[in-house]
Nucleic acid binder design. Structure first.
Lengths: 261, 261
DNA sequence: AACCATCGGTTCAAATATCAAACCGAAGCA
DNA sequence: TGCTTCGGTTTGATATTTGAACCGATGGTT
């Protein structure tokens, strides 16, 4: 693997649960030699992507990420544009709404919004990346990726995360076909046993799928009437976000969505 | 220079003025071989720090920066906490307020706020990094850096950006001493001929200087009364931001600021 | 059509950075 | 006193990165 990727993967170790990491920890968790890790971390530090704090000289994400984010948002107002829609979706459904984007070969959460309706809710503060085969967002996204990526994902061993996780590539392949024909995806407890979720894909200017919008509910609340209530508002929200980003779904999906919403 | 830094320096080529860059351009501007640049850009792409768009496959900053920024803000609410103070400062002075932070060895702009008072204003949309010797922010920050960094900066050739840029290390060294004793810095046309600015340093929890807050005005408006009006509100804003970030100035500066504000 | 420049991307010896392990001084703890 | 862990540095064997040349495609010009 490339040096640069190794360095960047260090960044992924920082989470809300673990915002500060010492050198030895960093090396252990990244599976790197300490000397190598030190040099990589120093490079990241020089650029300001991480910074060292305190007498223990632990590392944390640095101010440079803010500068880059401001630049990105100025060019492609992704987050800012999507947030209100996300919150509206959460409020309308009474459940957790979240938005994930393809970053490299991973599907990563970008933003989420909670509803105040119920005292139990699906939390996803600390998720780093969503498995394609076990989440509605993952399935919705994968269904519209180039076939080569689909094959790659399905040819790797698929982890059985819960009792309900589907891990048969053939079954999943069939589901992807269904998703393409109906314009949305569903996962019943495939990622966390007591979470059901529904997701719709998001598209860019070229009609390429770049991520998914999803509503995740505590299983006990997800009955048939709830599911059919969520679907149209989810799809409308996905349409809105897609068009706000200057994107457009492929014609086939646009047609299905038009009927469904 | 390390591979990782080379890759990261690619990120610095993306600006508001040049948000999309093709492979050949990227290589030229970074001074890298095209093959090298390609691999580096691919690595950045794999992580999502940049993405390729359009039929020309040009690169631009990717969605991963948003994810990282969200994490950083959750841990250290830098930007969010400072923005309202920045805007208030701009309004109170009728000029452009901006905030810069040390990232690695560079001082880089993080956020800025404009005042609607005048139809001419100082714009800094596209600044990548501020020279230490020629800006008030740079001087204010440099004055409180470790001596080793001060020596490093002053031993390198200092560019004469305008007729008024001071480039004599000895003179600058003396100015830094003044800045330390008065708690603020000033630059009269040293960066852009018709811009005068005043800056105050910002400190972290450990009393280390991590950047500066500055008010930049069109020279013609910066008379003595304006200068002495700006100074106290600037210092109060710097105190506010520092304490909002959980930081505190070294005792000597705290005392001076207390009197000056 | 023929030409030419340039684009994104690839190839392969030669140069360079990475690795594992051992080491350093400092700090924390018996 | 000894034992462990920390951040950081050094070493020589080894794997990766590098740069020049190359490829096919694209888009003007003549």
């Amino acid at each position: 693997m490339g040096t640069v990727l190794k360095a960047l993967e260090l960044l992924d170790l920082f989470t809300r649960a673990q915002p500060l990491i010492g050198l030895s920890d960093l090396a252990r968790q990244a599976g790197l030699n300490k000397a190598t890790c030190y040099r990589l971390a120093t490079s990241l530090c020089d650029f300001g992507l991480v910074e060292q704090v305190g007498p223990a000289r632990e590392y944390r994400l640095g101010p440079a990420v803010l500068r880059l984010a401001a630049l990105r948002e100025a060019q492609v107002p992704t987050q800012e544009a999507a947030m209100p829609i996300l919150q509206t979706l959460a409020n309308a459904t009474g459940e957790t709404a979240h938005l994930s984007l393809m970053m490299g070969q991973h599907l990563r959460p970008l933003a989420h919004a909670y509803s105040a309706t119920h005292s139990t809710r699906v939390m996803l503060e600390d998720t780093e990346s969503f498995p394609f085969h076990a989440t509605s967002s993952g399935l919705a996204t994968l269904a519209f990726q180039p076939e080569s990526l689909q094959r790659l994902v399905l040819s790797q061993p698929l982890q059985k995360l819960t009792r309900l996780t589907e891990t048969d590539p053939l079954v999943i392949s069939a589901r992807l076909e269904t998703i393409r024909s109906q314009g949305w995806a569903e996962s019943r407890g495939g990622y966390e046993a007591d979470v059901h979720s529904i997701a719709a894909p998001l598209f860019d200017t070229f009609g390429h799928c770049i991520g998914a919008l999803s509503v995740a509910a505590v299983s006990s609340r997800m009955n048939d009437s709830q599911r059919s209530a969520i679907r149209p508002v989810l799809i409308r929200a996905a349409q809105e976000i897609t068009s706000l980003w200057g994107g457009s779904p492929p014609p086939a999906i646009a047609a299905i969505w038009h009927k469904a919403a």
